[in-house]
Simulated scan of single mutants.
Amino acid sequence: MTMMIEAEGLSKTFRIARRRPGLLGSMRSIVDPEVRTVAAVQDLMLQVQQGEMIGLVGPNGAGKSTTIKMLTGILMPSAGRLRVAGLLPVRQRRELASRIGVVFGQRTQLWWDLPLRDSLQLLRHLYRVPEQRHQQNLNHLRKMLDLDEFIDTPVRQLSLGQRMRGDLVAALLHEPELLYLDEPTIGLDVVAKARIREFLLSLNAERGTTVLITTHDMDDIETLCPRMLIIDHGRKLYDGTVDTIRERFGGQRTLVAVLEAGETAVLSMLPRDESGLPILSELPSGVSVQKLDGPRLELRFGRATMPAHELVAWLGARHRLHDVTFKEPEIEDVIRRIYEENLLLTDNSIAV
């Protein structure tokens, strides 16, 4: 597999000047300001293969956008080695621009007063895309993202979801190998988010486009990215699969059982706890009744408590079951737990 991103020891620091009181008051703060150094990214190690979809997660100020700007060549790293698509981003920025696409959720590369169609035509000239290739790509993307209803509308009149679809087309007209998305679904409604996620999955499957996403929306990560990178204060905390981190830090799972007719009456005769929930006899240690709503019974249990199939067998031996499903913890809750419980080590990995 081709390596699209190779970063080793990647770091970025900023020098920030701020005023400080002195004998000359504000004049001294201008002539001799207090300067402090802020590390936005520290010793980041990252390898991304062609065709991967990877989510970059972290709180505000974690260094996500700074990392993206170094990967695109906008910012020069303070230290470390970096190659993107085999190129040095800062030194070979123009060549790299023809091989990557970038979408910033809160900014646009479209011309505000022009119809979307005209903006896309101007971008063809900026990227020097041949007319025939441009038309083929545009026709394909128009169909995938349903642009026809607003392609002749000025950008300023587009809804946020329509504008984001236009920005995606603008970033993909020159067929980039690597697509950076910085908060691509911010502010969008549920329908717009679903449409963009479906499009990105199709793009990755059909063209093998490598996608790197920074987002606060954990649904984006769970839907799109088998692999997740968590960073905080510029340091890498975790690099692995979403399933693995949920397995290690997901804590509690929920068994949702729909009981057969008549079983609800049986449960209604059982004694209740302080919360009004039925007390099941011989309930395994570490298992608790979470909710009872008609024939729907929810049991909460820890991953280390007992295997899921054993809990189903235990419940099935006592009650007639119509259906059984499991609810996994939300990845957002998992990451919140990692931060709140400080499950970190000093070697840039997450504690077990």
Score class of each variant (00 low, 15 high):
Lys291Tyr: 09
Ser285Phe: 01
Arg142Asp: 08
Leu270Ala: 03
Gly294Phe: 03
Ile74Phe: 04
Leu46Ile: 09
Met269Trp: 11
Ser78Leu: 09
Gly61Ser: 05
Phe14Arg: 14
Ala171Tyr: 05
Glu131Met: 08
Arg303His: 12
Leu120Ile: 10
Thr37His: 05
Met269Arg: 15
Val190Gln: 04
Gly294Thr: 08
Asn137Met: 13
His233Asp: 01
Thr325Gln: 10
His134Asp: 03
Thr72Ala: 01
Glu149Gly: 05
Ser11Leu: 07
Val334Tyr: 11
Val352Leu: 11
Val258Glu: 09
Leu292Glu: 02
Glu95Val: 04
Leu88Cys: 10
Gln136Ala: 14
Val35Lys: 08
Val155Cys: 10
Leu116Arg: 12
Leu71Trp: 05
Pro154Gly: 06
Leu280Ala: 03
Arg99Ser: 00
Pro307Gly: 11
Ile231Phe: 12
Leu229Pro: 01
Leu321Cys: 11
Ile331Leu: 15
Arg318Gln: 04
Leu315Gly: 06
Leu345Phe: 03
Thr305Tyr: 06
Leu126Thr: 12
Ile338Lys: 12
Leu188His: 06
Val211Thr: 06
Asp32Thr: 10
Thr325His: 07
Glu247His: 14
Gly63Cys: 08
Lys12Asp: 13
Thr153Ala: 10
Leu259Tyr: 02
Ile100Gly: 10
Met3Trp: 05
Gly101Ser: 04
Gln290Val: 01
Leu75Arg: 10
Arg337Gln: 03
Thr254Asn: 01
His233Cys: 06
Ile5Met: 09
Glu183Leu: 10
Ile100Glu: 02
Thr210Asn: 05
Leu96Tyr: 00
Leu280Met: 09
Gly294Glu: 02
Met144Leu: 12
Ser288Val: 12
Leu141Trp: 04
Asn139Asp: 15
Ile230Leu: 15
Gly302Ser: 09
Val312Trp: 03
Ala313Asn: 13
Thr264Asp: 06
Val191Gln: 13
Gly25Thr: 02
Gln252Arg: 15
Val266Trp: 04
Leu160Tyr: 02
Leu147Ile: 10
Asp118Gln: 15
Arg91Val: 03
Arg94Tyr: 04
Thr67Cys: 07
Thr244Glu: 15
Gly73Asn: 05
Arg107Trp: 01
Glu328Ser: 09
Arg94Asp: 11
Ser29Glu: 13
Lys236Asp: 00
Val169Pro: 08
Ile213Tyr: 06
Gly58Thr: 07
Ser11Ile: 08
Arg36Cys: 02
Leu71Thr: 03
Arg163Thr: 01
Ala171Cys: 02
Thr2Val: 11
Pro130Arg: 00
Leu280His: 07
Gln290Tyr: 04
Gln92Lys: 03
Gly187Gln: 08
Glu260Trp: 02
Ser119Asn: 05
Leu345Asp: 13
Val324Gly: 13
Gly73Ala: 02
Lys327Gln: 15
Arg133Asp: 00
Met306Gly: 07
His319Phe: 15
Ala257Tyr: 10
Leu75Gly: 01
Ser26Ile: 11
Arg227Tyr: 07
Gln290Gly: 12
Val48Ile: 15
Thr223Val: 14
Asp148Gln: 12
Thr305Asn: 12
Ser65Val: 14
